[in-house]
Amino acid sequence: MSYLEDFYKAYDEDRRLLSQSGQVEYLTTMKYINECIAEHSQPKILEIGAGTGRYSVTLAKEGHSVTAVELVEHNLEKLRAKLDGTEKIKAIQGNALDLSELADNCFDITLVLGPMYHLYIREDMLRALSEAVRVTKNGGHILVAYCMNEAAVIQHAFLHGNLQKVLDNDMLTPEWHCKSEPKELFQLVRTEDIDSLNSELPVERTKLIVADGAANYISECIDAMDSFTFEKFMEYHFSICERQDLIGASNHTLDILRKL
């Protein structure tokens, strides 16, 4: 866990999500979380891999009942510091691979917005998803975020000039699929990888969303936008974020599942 702990101690995730370019992913994810919330009466919400609480704390402050599970103690401390004691939230340290302290069929909405970024073996990815499904009620929603392969290749290898380093370090398969391991921090997937995982679980997909689309490609442009232009950009983004022809090129996707 040291690579992950060191990364999150040095990285300001809140700051990223609060920038205008980071807001694209955040606002999109919240839009679809709220759509799921609207389908449940007084939903019990679980976030696995809650980070510093950008989503969990927001939802709790909106009056929802939230359980936040986070692996990295540094993140958990930052999450708890945002609470004033009036929120209906339980924040605990835990691992997405083992949620044995949580009962079966307990939550209406389960958020998995970070763990799949940092699991490098298919069996671990499937185990984390299986745990998320287990603790979710039948008919409940599981929202899972992924980092996508093509955005990483385009940006890291080509746009940022790291192609030779990537080739020298044998970080790509002949099919241009990134090879991920703990020291690289992030697991990068394609839509067929996500579909393969889902096929082994008692779930059905309701939507697969482009979470940030072009935002990371043109982050400097978006961060420089005035409020009117940014509002129009978000209108455009929301109009296309369910287009399946754009899924693979997004940095992040959001898979919305319903437990059968």
Rank of each mutant, 00 (worst) to 15 (best):
K207P: 03
G161H: 04
C241Q: 09
M148A: 00
V135P: 12
T67D: 01
M148I: 06
S250W: 07
S180I: 01
E220C: 05
Y11L: 00
W176N: 08
C147K: 07
T110S: 12
G51F: 06
L99Q: 08
D255K: 06
E101T: 15
D193V: 02
A50G: 14
R258F: 02
R258L: 12
L27I: 06
V153S: 02
P115H: 04
Y55D: 02
E70W: 01
A128F: 02
N34M: 13
E220V: 03
D170N: 12
E220T: 10
P174G: 01
K88Y: 04
L197P: 03
F233N: 10
P202I: 05
Q23R: 15
I154F: 09
N75K: 04
L99C: 09
K88A: 11
E39A: 10
L185M: 05
T191D: 07
L163D: 01
E175D: 14
L17E: 02
S65E: 14
V166L: 11
L76Q: 06
R15F: 05
P43G: 03
F186H: 13
H237T: 06
L188S: 02
F7M: 03
Y217N: 06
Y26I: 03
F233Y: 15
L143G: 01
Q23S: 15
K82R: 15
H141Y: 15
V135E: 08
D195I: 09
A215I: 08
N138Q: 10
